[in-house]
Design a protein around this nucleic acid. Sequence first.
DNA 1: GGAGTGATGACA
DNA 2: GTCATCACTCCA
Length: 172
Amino acid sequence: MILSSADFINNDTIYLAQKLIGKYVVRKFANNTLAKYLITEVEAYHSMADKANHARFGKTNRTEVLFKTGGRWYVTLCYGVHYLLNLVTGEEGNPSAVLIRGINEVVGPGKVTKLLKVDRSFNNLEATENNNLWLEDHNFKVQNITALPRVGINYAQEYKDKLWRFKLNNNF
DNA sequence: GGAGTGATGACA
DNA sequence: GTCATCACTCCA
């Protein structure tokens, strides 16, 4: 079952992040081959109050897409080297997103985009088949989800210890 | 443990 | 315009 934008328009980012665990991200490459990857690790970036959220400074050219309605991709270059793939969630004006950190056995946001061959051209695109990158639900049975603190956000003060990183804990 | 890398926002 | 900062990965 293909998930549509409407499935990601929900202001409860934490809830959506957990729901994304066990779903599949599907990539259609230039040569028309399909690749499906199980989402195993995500982080939630929730609202402007979240000091780890890129949108914490307000709306700018970079973060504009975060303020739009859910179901889009937010791709950003980090440290000049790695692309990070986020799914925008929430309603218009509520800057929230879920960072996809791990798929199948590949864990690490930079590795995810490398494997998926995702770059900034996907930024602001909707997660649909037409854009060659979308999400599907194949009724994967999630046994257990572990909540962890997020990574690399020591500057986020009281938000750095929030357990907004979720990891699939199934025994493969 | 440490460097590389470049977009971004803050400030002048 | 400059400057510091950063949601990471790789190679020691």
